[in-house]
Simulated assay, not measured.
Amino acid sequence: MAEGGNELQLLGTWYSTYAIRAKIALGLKGLSYEYIEQDLFGKSELLLKSNPVYKKVPVLVHRGRPVCESRVILEYIDETWAGASPLLLPSDPHDRATARFWATYFDTTFFPVWRLLMRSTTAEQTAEEFRSVVPQVETLERAFTECSKGKAFFGGDAVGLVDVVVGSFVPWFRAVDEVTGTSLFDEAKFPGLAAWADRFLAVDAVREAMPDAGKLLEHHKGFLAKLASQTG
């Protein structure tokens, strides 16, 4: 392992997709670290000190210096341990720009639309929000074709930045599918993404970083029940 002990710490919450991104990247690079679970409803002094601007997870603390925001953390890990494979960002400038573009698309365009589906509490709302998110999945399917160039991952032969950014949400996608009766990455409609998701989850570093599916499903059901009681 390249790091250990107190040199590398990760502040996160077990269900946070953004903290999962950092866990995956650290695992892919073969880095050991101390994971410190955070309570977002009773934020620790360490979290508030490490991320005084946003007061959110994840935060990577490297030799006492904090790095905040998941995408920033991913690139920091990739650059700091550039000698460890895989590289999350490709060496070719255009390919690197393309990867950053699709990662940004997912966070700023895809996620806000899917989030409405995730928060839907009625059958009518679910149907409406699912119709809205399908065009975004179609775009993501095209992105996979463009980025993968016929290979296994968005990053080509190995997991890359877009794989980690999108893939951190796969357990959540499946939990929401289970609750709503939908199929976001439908195998018949989106064969590229459907097969990619299975391959991604089979990667050792990814599997080790993911939350328990049953626990996540119950967490989501509890969230929806609370949301319904507030809006009902």
Results as ranks from 00 to 15, higher is better:
134 V>H: 11
93 P>R: 02
231 T>Q: 13
199 R>L: 06
195 A>H: 10
90 P>I: 14
87 L>D: 04
117 L>F: 04
119 R>A: 14
44 S>N: 08
191 P>K: 05
97 A>S: 08
74 L>Y: 04
36 I>H: 01
128 E>P: 01
186 D>R: 08
154 F>E: 09
55 K>R: 13
229 S>V: 14
10 L>A: 01
4 G>S: 11
201 L>V: 04
96 R>E: 11
40 L>A: 02
27 G>P: 00
109 T>K: 15
185 F>N: 06
93 P>M: 11
121 T>Q: 13
149 K>D: 15
69 E>C: 11
12 G>C: 02
28 L>T: 10
161 L>H: 10
221 K>A: 08
227 L>N: 03
133 V>I: 12
97 A>L: 07
92 D>A: 13
74 L>D: 10
177 D>P: 05
138 E>K: 14
149 K>H: 13
222 G>C: 11
75 E>M: 08
27 G>V: 02
223 F>A: 06
78 D>R: 08
187 E>Q: 15
190 F>A: 03
179 V>A: 06
54 Y>Q: 15
221 K>F: 04
186 D>I: 07
84 A>W: 00
143 A>T: 02
114 W>E: 00
141 E>R: 09
6 N>I: 12
75 E>A: 05
208 E>H: 13
121 T>A: 11
210 M>W: 05
166 V>Y: 08
139 T>F: 10
195 A>L: 10
164 V>Q: 06
191 P>E: 12
35 Y>M: 03
66 P>Y: 05
3 E>G: 11
24 I>V: 15
5 G>S: 07
115 R>F: 03
208 E>V: 11
181 G>K: 07
21 R>C: 00
77 I>F: 13
193 L>G: 04
188 A>P: 06
36 I>S: 01
119 R>E: 15
19 A>S: 14
66 P>N: 02
223 F>C: 02
212 D>M: 12
142 R>T: 13
183 S>W: 13
207 R>W: 08
196 W>Y: 03
19 A>E: 00
95 D>Y: 09
74 L>M: 06
88 L>H: 05
205 A>E: 07
49 K>S: 14
148 S>R: 10
41 F>T: 12
32 S>A: 13
221 K>P: 04
171 P>M: 06
107 D>A: 14
75 E>V: 09
66 P>K: 09
82 A>E: 09
127 A>T: 12
1 M>H: 06
16 S>V: 09
47 L>T: 00
188 A>L: 06
81 W>I: 07
48 L>M: 11
187 E>K: 15
157 D>A: 08
100 R>M: 01
195 A>F: 12
99 A>I: 05
130 F>S: 00
132 S>D: 07
149 K>N: 08
58 P>C: 03
102 W>Y: 13
10 L>F: 05
34 E>V: 04
35 Y>R: 07
36 I>A: 00
216 L>W: 01
138 E>A: 15
14 W>V: 11
